[in-house]
């Protein structure tokens, strides 16, 4: 019995031999560049010193983790990171869906295409450029935003030093950059909806709003759920490269996130083990979030990532 099953398995494996051959370089890639670095996470439990190397650096157990948990910045870092992601999830994610719905209703094809071209455009601008434009536009003395405020009789504002303004600025910046690009995947999902469903809805006398509600949204729900789950896996990341460009002492209260902290302590301060421990904490939380989200989604809706 067992032999037979084994033989069948072998035959199946053999029939897929070219597929394995294809997958081989991908597998090598994942092992070398994704899994091998995970082995390097042991330095979070060691006092890593490059001259002693991995194996000879002394073990310190959870020293660096407990140092982080005792830090007065722990709560602030976690809060800022989560809130920046929450803002993104609550505002920018639905905004892309709304844009897709609006674009989908456009009947003039040339207008539709032009609108798409223009909304995709910011995605192609690099983050250094975008951040420097933000600084430029918000400058109290020479920025266009403050010129506008002043001409309307308002008081010029130094937005980048106001902790309360940072999250809205950052969220708006990302909205500008990503809304068009992110709408692509929803447009694709909408175009995959069976046309007969729309007709059926119309014959029932449904208006466009009802159509949107009863056909379009359910039609893209699967895509939305999968994307939300993936997004939740990154709730502890925030694009620190861009944040660094907008950060200053006065807005640190809201702009300091785990990513920028790790960068400051690890790369600039040379505390590799400490930074790796904090980074690992970040990864573990993110991973736990995905598992949880996937579990809940599988339980309460039909879709899940795996």
């Amino acid at each position: 019995m067992a032999g037979k099953r084994g033989a069948r398995l072998l035959r199946r494996v053999w029939s897929g031999r070219y597929l394995y051959l294809m997958f081989l370089p991908v597998f090598v890639y994942y092992m070398l560049f994704r899994y091998a670095p995970m082995v390097g996470l042991v330095i979070a439990f060691k006092d890593f010193n490059a001259f002693l190397g991995f194996s000879r650096s002394p073990w310190v157990g959870f020293k660096f983790f407990s140092q982080f948990f005792r830090s007065i910045y722990l709560w602030r870092l976690v809060r800022n990171t989560l809130l920046i992601n929450l803002y993104d999830l609550v505002f920018n994610f639905p905004a892309a869906i709304v844009l897709a719905l609006l674009l989908n209703e456009v009947q003039n094809r040339r207008f539709k295409k032009t609108a798409q071209t223009i909304t995709y455009l910011p995605y192609f601008v690099s983050s250094v450029v975008i951040a420097s434009m933000v600084v430029q536009f918000l400058s109290p003395s020479s920025g266009i935003v403050n010129h506008l405020i002043a001409s309307l009789g308002g008081e010029r504002q130094y937005f980048l030093t106001q902790p309360g303004a940072f999250r809205p600025i950052f969220t708006l910046m990302n909205l500008w950059k990503n809304i068009g690009w992110n709408s692509i995947i929803f447009l694709a999902a909408i175009s995959g909806i069976n046309g007969e469903l729309y007709e059926a809805c119309m014959i029932d006398g449904g208006g466009y709003l009802r159509r949107m509600w009863h056909v379009t949204l359910p039609g893209i729900a699967g895509t939305v759920v999968v994307l939300v789950i993936m997004r939740l896996g990154h709730v502890m990341d925030a694009g620190y490269e861009t944040i660094l460009l907008l950060q200053n002492n006065a807005n640190l209260e809201t702009s300091d996130v785990i990513g920028t902290y790790v960068y400051r302590r690890g790369l600039r301060g040379g505390e590799y083990s400490y930074a790796t421990a904090v980074g690992m904490f970040q990864s573990v939380i993110g991973f736990a979030m995905v598992i949880l989200a996937n579990f809940l989604s599988r339980r309460y809706s039909e879709t899940s990532l795996w």
Binding site: L9, R12, V13, S15, G16, L19, Y20, F23, V26, F27, Y30, F33, R34, Y35, A36, P37, M38, V39, G40, L41, I43, M230, G233, H234, V262, G266, L267, Y272, A275, T276, G279, M280, S283, V284, G286, F287, V290, L305, W306
Partner: peptide, 26 residues
């Protein structure tokens, strides 16, 4: 579908989306 173990391999790849070694180990 005929590739045996693809489910596992897919998860192996997906896992790295959410868990990584970080900048310095890489």
């Amino acid at each position: 579908k005929k590739m045996v173990g693809r489910r596992f391999l897919t998860l192996m790849c997906t896992f790295t989306m959410f868990f990584n070694g970080g900048m310095i180990p890489t």
